[in-house]
């Protein structure tokens, strides 16, 4: 299928490539900035994650999906997503273990537990959102048949 995918789909454009190259670092920084907020200032993992994830998509549009797929280690994406989920769930379940309810931050015996708890969760969510968007984009663009036949796990 990758043979069928290439011709006609990707058009190299200097304008797009240059723009993306310039803009990308700023967007990624902005994404992280948003992600680290959320507890007491506007921001949060969803928004930041989407912005961070859009970076990879921009790269894909500028340099071609297959090229980006090869460049980006798919294991990294998967790892970020799973770790994000586990962070979120771990903090939530941890408060249960400490005798509270799910996500009851102030059960944690640290200062400003609520703030750091929320921001950690936001970071986890940001990771999930970013990598899920990236992953979905790649996975479904290729189809599961691709994943099964080629053993390509992404």
């Amino acid at each position: 299928m990758s043979d069928a995918e290439q011709p006609g789909l990707y058009v190299e454009s200097t304008v797009i490539m240059t723009t993306v190259r310039v803009v990308t670092p700023f967007i990624l920084t902005f994404g992280l900035f948003i992600m680290f907020h959320g507890a007491d200032s506007p921001g949060g993992g969803f928004q930041g994650g989407v912005i961070a994830g859009s970076v990879v998509m921009m790269l894909a549009f500028a340099y071609g999906i297959e090229a980006t797929r090869d460049w980006l280690d798919s294991r990294l994406v998967v790892a970020i997503a799973s770790l994000g989920v586990l962070t979120f769930a771990g903090i939530g379940l941890g408060s249960i273990l400490l005798g509270g309810t799910f996500l009851e931050y102030h059960r944690y015996p640290i200062e400003k537990a609520s703030k750091y708890g929320i921001e950690l969760v936001e970071l986890g969510i940001g990771g999930i959102v970013a990598s899920v968007i990236i992953g979905l984009f790649f996975v479904i663009a290729a189809g599961f048949g691709h994943a099964i036949d080629g053993g390509d796990e992404s």
């Binding site: 995918e5 789909l9 998509m57 979905l136 984009f137 790649f138 996975v139 479904i140 663009a141």
Partner: peptide, 13 residues
Amino acid sequence: AVALALIVRIYAE
């Protein structure tokens, strides 16, 4: 994102 991914696949097929 999902919709566009599907569209990419549809176009490829």
